[in-house]
Simulated scan of single mutants.
Amino acid sequence: MPDEIPTTDDREPALVVTLMIDHVLDLAATWTAWDGRPVRADERIYTPHKAIRRVTDHLIDHLAEVEARLAGNPTIPDRWHASASTTPADLAPFTDQDLAEARSRLTRLSQIWASRLTKLTPDQLDRSPGAGWTFRQIVFHLAGSTYYADAVGDLSAVGSDR
Rank of each mutant, 00 (worst) to 15 (best):
W34D: 01
G36P: 03
P2A: 15
E101T: 14
A157C: 10
D10A: 12
S115W: 11
D150E: 14
T86Y: 05
R162N: 11
H141M: 09
A157L: 12
A41Q: 13
G72H: 06
D9W: 07
D150A: 09
T7A: 06
W133V: 00
W80T: 11
E4R: 15
M1V: 05
R37I: 11
G153M: 03
L117E: 07
W113R: 03
H49K: 07
P88W: 06
Y46C: 10
T95W: 07
S85A: 14
W80D: 14
H141I: 07
K119R: 15
S145L: 03
D96M: 08
S160T: 09
A114T: 02
V39M: 11
T56A: 08
E67M: 12
D9Q: 06
Q137D: 02
Q137E: 10
Q111G: 14
M1A: 12
A114C: 14
D42Q: 14
R105I: 04
T30D: 00
A143Y: 08
P93N: 10
T134Q: 06
T18L: 04
V24Q: 07
S83T: 10
A131S: 05
P74M: 07
T118M: 13
P13W: 03
E67Y: 08
A71S: 09
T18F: 04
V158W: 12
G130L: 03
P13E: 03
P93V: 05
A92W: 00
E4Y: 13
G132I: 00
D57Y: 04
A14K: 02
A151K: 02
L109C: 04
L15A: 15
T75I: 08
T7S: 05
G159W: 14
L120N: 01
T7L: 05
K119V: 10
H62S: 08
H49Q: 02
A28V: 01
D9L: 03
L117Q: 11
I52L: 03
L63G: 13
A131F: 04
R103E: 07
P48H: 08
S85T: 15
R162G: 11
V39E: 07
T146A: 06
T7F: 04
Y46A: 03
A51I: 00
H49V: 01
E12D: 12
H58V: 01
T75K: 10
R44I: 05
S160C: 07
S104L: 15
T75P: 00
S145M: 02
M20S: 00
R53C: 02
N73S: 14
L27Y: 06
L125I: 03
I5V: 09
N73E: 11
S83V: 06
